[in-house]
Amino acid sequence: MVDSKQQWKAWLYLAPAIVLLLVFTVWPIINTVRMAFLENYSGLKAAGGATFQFGLGNFEKVIGYRRFVSCLKNTVLLCLLTVPISTILALLIAVALNSIKVCQKALQTIFFLPYVTNSIAIGMVFAAMFNIVGSFYGTQNEIIVTAGIINNVIQFFGGEPINWINYGSTYEANMLVMTVYIVWNALPFKILVLLGGLQSINKQYYDAAKVDGTSRRRIFTRITVPLLSPMIAYVVITGFIGGFKEYTSIVGIFGEKMGPPDDAGRLNTMVGFIYDALSTNSQGRASAAALILFGIILVVTMINMQVSKKRVHY
């Protein structure tokens, strides 16, 4: 223990960080909880001297919104689609990267590049790829000129172009684009973590497996995956947490309208819903939605931890 006379020094050194954390992290959290339970709380009215009663009105209102249900559905659906797909893909790519010898470092760098690229920029590129017309938003009467690479490829193989994200596109097509984009965006970090895990596995396990004549498939399922399970669990848990906070990727593809031009807000997510509430000065409702999101992430993470307790070895 530090000498009690010396303790004030320790507090002094910690003070800058503590002050910043108190002001910008701890107080906002407390304030969010407070605002969520104040009926019809609005920052503007509060500044005007209005007082609010405690109650569950914000939660009732939030849950009652049709938009909230669709936001929740979009968020959960995107999570359930992208986390498993990206994890499995990342695992396969990491194993492949780990087993090649030529150009390993160069390929690692290439696979990591999306991670250091701005996700809005990536979104715009993806939007351009999936576009069917020259312009971004498009209207009902616009002449269809296939400009998107994806549709060009489909046509090259004799298929019909699909309206992915433009005026009149279907919800399924929109979700498919979002899934492809989010998976692609999530891959680099997962590959990096899993590759690091792979490289720390003792090579002797593989020698031992070789001596015993283990097939490649069995080596993968019985040795590599179990030994990598702590990293896989980490990637899945952080993947779900990130997935529930999905927002920028939608903006990246669809812009601030959060949906195709004829159905704005169709792809809005939980975080998007919170932003919308804030922009209409309904801090109470925004706080309530934030608390609901927090609760969902907490429950999902706890389930994840329980599963990994059984599945993650040593």
């Binding site: 002797q204 019985r222 070895h313």
Partner: peptide
């Protein structure tokens, strides 16, 4: 083959 640090599968 018995390896120096045994290489038993830990899981």
């Amino acid at each position: 083959l018995v390896f120096q640090n045994y290489a038993l599968y830990p899981h």
